[in-house]
Write a protein that binds this DNA or RNA. Sequence first.
DNA 1: CTGAATTAGTTTCAAATGTAACTATTATGC
DNA 2: GCATAATAGTTACATTTGAAACTAATTCAG
Lengths: 172, 172
Amino acid sequence: MPSPSQALELENFLPYRLSILAQIVSESLHDLYAEPFGLTVTQWRVMAALGRFAPLTASDVGQRIVMDKVAVSRAVAGLMERGLVERATDRADRRRASLRLSARGRAMHARIVPIALGYEERLYKVLSAEERRSFDALTDRLFAHAGTLRQAGARTSRSALLDSEPPARSRS
Amino acid sequence: MPSPSQALELENFLPYRLSILAQIVSESLHDLYAEPFGLTVTQWRVMAALGRFAPLTASDVGQRIVMDKVAVSRAVAGLMERGLVERATDRADRRRASLRLSARGRAMHARIVPIALGYEERLYKVLSAEERRSFDALTDRLFAHAGTLRQAGARTSRSALLDSEPPARSRS
DNA sequence: CTGAATTAGTTTCAAATGTAACTATTATGC
DNA sequence: GCATAATAGTTACATTTGAAACTAATTCAG
């Protein structure tokens, strides 16, 4: 078996494959909540982050969902306009503001979660339970490894996601 | 084991995981070719498609790399300006134009391919050969299944990718 | 304390992207 | 053949997105 890799076979090229798989999945899911709830993908992710991890600052949200602070700021602005998110300025440090879902936001969140989980469930149906675990484990490792590869010579190094631990507050 | 899924754990939610994994991989790769070659992600994908599948029309390219014709048109315009791609109008059907890499384009392509494959190789190093095959097979199935799920109630149904067969020319 | 440096978050401006309209060419129905 | 429809591709406009500048508040050095 000579030269194992000389030609770039796009259809077998991992970055490309991941990209289109992620894209079709993300769009499919968006199709389910966009119209009934009027949320963009980023807005939904902010809501999901707040729904899961109680009060968070905008920066915390950004670290959670791998989104820069500008994107978070805009998504939050839109959500606050619609009364889905509440902001409370931190009295000790008035630069910060902790965010949480409002009652309306929680209600909407509660309606979307089953839709999202239902889609995931349908998608996963094509895999056996074991395959599913295997796939999760493999993506975890790929993700961690991709992060370390990126360190070597990258400007932005914001990583540490796929992680259920909070990102370690800078101050105690 | 009661209610197997009630809360949405973002960090374990497949669409989210796929999305950020694809994002970090795509960005890491882009870091490698963006600066030296001055290509956007879409331009590089067009070049990759042309590099692999000889002469293609703009529509063919779009089907190959899952990109709408406007995006292809713009990427091609940029590539032609730089003399990386050549266009030849089809004499039989003057709406069509077949695209191919120019000599310069082929030279650049030849320099980028090893970089791309090298990145893929480094990324895959975290998996054993068997895990790698397994991961590929699982993504294939997820992809195919995601496509069928999307059919049911989707406006755009452009699928059929991850496939090395050409997308069946409309005319013989 | 006072001034430089940090940090949280927003706003501004430019580039990228998507949708819809448009041009040019070919196919189809009658 | 001729009007209508369909197809390939581009252009125009409106929205989204990202990078950098900016505001406000806090920390840190001396």
